[in-house]
Design a protein around this nucleic acid. Sequence first.
DNA 1: CATTTGACAGGAA
DNA 2: CTTCCTGCCAAAT
Length: 105
Amino acid sequence: MKKTFFAKVYDVARRIPKGKVATYKDIARLAGNPKAQRAVGMAMKNNPDIKIVPCHRVVGSDGKMHGYSAKGGIASKIRLLKKEGVVFVENRVNLNISRWNKLKG
DNA sequence: CATTTGACAGGAA
DNA sequence: CTTCCTGCCAAAT
Protein backbone atom coordinates (compact mmCIF):
# COMPACT_ATOMS: atom_id res chain seq x y z
CA MET A 1 0.00 0.00 0.00
CA LYS A 2 1.85 3.02 -1.24
CA LYS A 3 0.70 6.28 0.22
CA THR A 4 0.30 9.12 -2.12
CA PHE A 5 2.32 12.24 -1.57
CA PHE A 6 -0.83 13.97 -0.41
CA ALA A 7 -1.37 11.34 2.26
CA LYS A 8 2.10 11.94 3.58
CA VAL A 9 1.48 15.65 3.58
CA TYR A 10 -1.66 15.20 5.64
CA ASP A 11 0.17 12.93 7.99
CA VAL A 12 2.89 15.48 8.55
CA ALA A 13 0.47 18.36 8.88
CA ARG A 14 -1.41 16.47 11.55
CA ARG A 15 1.62 16.27 13.79
CA ILE A 16 2.22 20.01 13.87
CA PRO A 17 1.95 20.94 17.54
CA LYS A 18 -0.45 23.58 18.71
CA GLY A 19 1.01 27.05 18.95
CA LYS A 20 3.50 26.28 16.20
CA VAL A 21 3.49 26.60 12.44
CA ALA A 22 5.32 24.89 9.62
CA THR A 23 6.14 26.16 6.18
CA TYR A 24 5.06 24.45 3.00
CA LYS A 25 8.66 23.74 2.34
CA ASP A 26 9.15 22.06 5.69
CA ILE A 27 6.18 19.86 5.10
CA ALA A 28 7.31 19.00 1.62
CA ARG A 29 10.64 18.02 3.08
CA LEU A 30 9.12 15.91 5.85
CA ALA A 31 6.81 14.34 3.32
CA GLY A 32 9.81 13.22 1.34
CA ASN A 33 10.27 15.83 -1.38
CA PRO A 34 11.78 19.17 -0.37
CA LYS A 35 10.87 20.65 -3.70
CA ALA A 36 7.24 19.68 -3.69
CA GLN A 37 5.99 22.62 -1.68
CA ARG A 38 3.60 23.42 -4.53
CA ALA A 39 2.10 20.00 -4.33
CA VAL A 40 1.83 20.55 -0.58
CA GLY A 41 -0.23 23.65 -1.16
CA MET A 42 -2.43 21.65 -3.50
CA ALA A 43 -2.85 18.99 -0.85
CA MET A 44 -3.98 21.60 1.63
CA LYS A 45 -6.53 22.99 -0.74
CA ASN A 46 -7.67 19.50 -1.71
CA ASN A 47 -7.63 18.57 1.95
CA PRO A 48 -9.88 15.61 2.77
CA ASP A 49 -11.05 17.02 6.09
CA ILE A 50 -10.22 20.41 7.46
CA LYS A 51 -11.02 19.03 10.89
CA ILE A 52 -8.34 16.37 10.93
CA VAL A 53 -5.69 18.36 9.12
CA PRO A 54 -4.72 21.62 10.82
CA CYS A 55 -4.03 23.38 7.56
CA HIS A 56 -4.13 26.66 9.40
CA ARG A 57 -0.78 25.81 10.96
CA VAL A 58 0.86 25.89 7.57
CA VAL A 59 2.24 29.19 6.34
CA GLY A 60 4.63 30.41 3.70
CA SER A 61 8.39 30.54 4.13
CA ASP A 62 8.18 34.21 5.04
CA GLY A 63 5.59 33.61 7.71
CA LYS A 64 3.03 34.92 5.29
CA MET A 65 -0.04 32.93 4.47
CA HIS A 66 -1.60 32.44 1.10
CA GLY A 67 -4.98 30.97 1.65
CA TYR A 68 -7.32 28.99 3.75
CA SER A 69 -9.90 26.63 2.40
CA ALA A 70 -12.01 26.74 5.52
CA LYS A 71 -14.60 29.31 6.43
CA GLY A 72 -13.36 32.81 7.05
CA GLY A 73 -10.36 32.40 4.79
CA ILE A 74 -7.07 33.97 5.73
CA ALA A 75 -8.58 36.23 8.34
CA SER A 76 -9.88 33.24 10.23
CA LYS A 77 -6.59 31.47 9.81
CA ILE A 78 -4.72 34.33 11.43
CA ARG A 79 -7.19 34.46 14.24
CA LEU A 80 -6.89 30.74 14.92
CA LEU A 81 -3.13 30.88 15.00
CA LYS A 82 -3.14 33.84 17.33
CA LYS A 83 -5.52 31.98 19.55
CA GLU A 84 -3.20 29.00 19.68
CA GLY A 85 -0.36 31.19 20.80
CA VAL A 86 1.49 31.73 17.55
CA VAL A 87 3.41 34.97 17.60
CA PHE A 88 2.34 37.43 14.95
CA VAL A 89 3.97 40.56 13.70
CA GLU A 90 1.53 42.72 11.79
CA ASN A 91 0.11 40.16 9.39
CA ARG A 92 3.01 37.80 9.53
CA VAL A 93 4.02 34.89 11.72
CA ASN A 94 7.25 35.24 13.61
CA LEU A 95 8.85 32.07 12.34
CA ASN A 96 11.85 32.70 14.49
CA ILE A 97 9.71 31.82 17.47
CA SER A 98 6.72 29.91 16.22
CA ARG A 99 8.27 27.70 13.61
CA TRP A 100 7.82 24.00 14.21
CA ASN A 101 10.83 21.72 14.17
CA LYS A 102 13.09 24.61 14.77
CA LEU A 103 14.89 23.18 17.77
CA LYS A 104 14.26 21.40 21.05
CA GLY A 105 10.63 20.48 20.95
C1' DC B 1 -0.36 10.76 -22.45
C1' DA B 2 -0.61 16.14 -22.59
C1' DT B 3 -2.11 20.13 -20.29
C1' DT B 4 -3.53 22.78 -16.46
C1' DT B 5 -3.54 23.99 -11.72
C1' DG B 6 -1.72 26.59 -7.45
C1' DA B 7 -2.51 27.92 -0.24
C1' DC B 8 5.43 27.80 -2.98
C1' DA B 9 10.16 29.59 -2.95
C1' DG B 10 13.94 32.27 -4.33
C1' DG B 11 16.00 35.65 -6.96
C1' DA B 12 16.22 39.93 -9.76
C1' DA B 13 14.83 44.65 -10.88
C1' DC C 1 9.09 47.09 0.10
C1' DT C 2 6.67 45.51 -4.29
C1' DT C 3 6.40 43.29 -8.65
C1' DC C 4 7.74 39.98 -12.15
C1' DC C 5 9.94 35.76 -13.62
C1' DT C 6 11.75 31.09 -13.26
C1' DG C 7 12.05 26.29 -11.32
C1' DC C 8 9.84 22.60 -9.40
C1' DC C 9 6.22 19.28 -7.99
C1' DA C 10 2.00 15.92 -7.68
C1' DA C 11 -2.82 15.68 -8.59
C1' DA C 12 -6.69 16.69 -11.45
C1' DT C 13 -8.80 17.11 -15.97
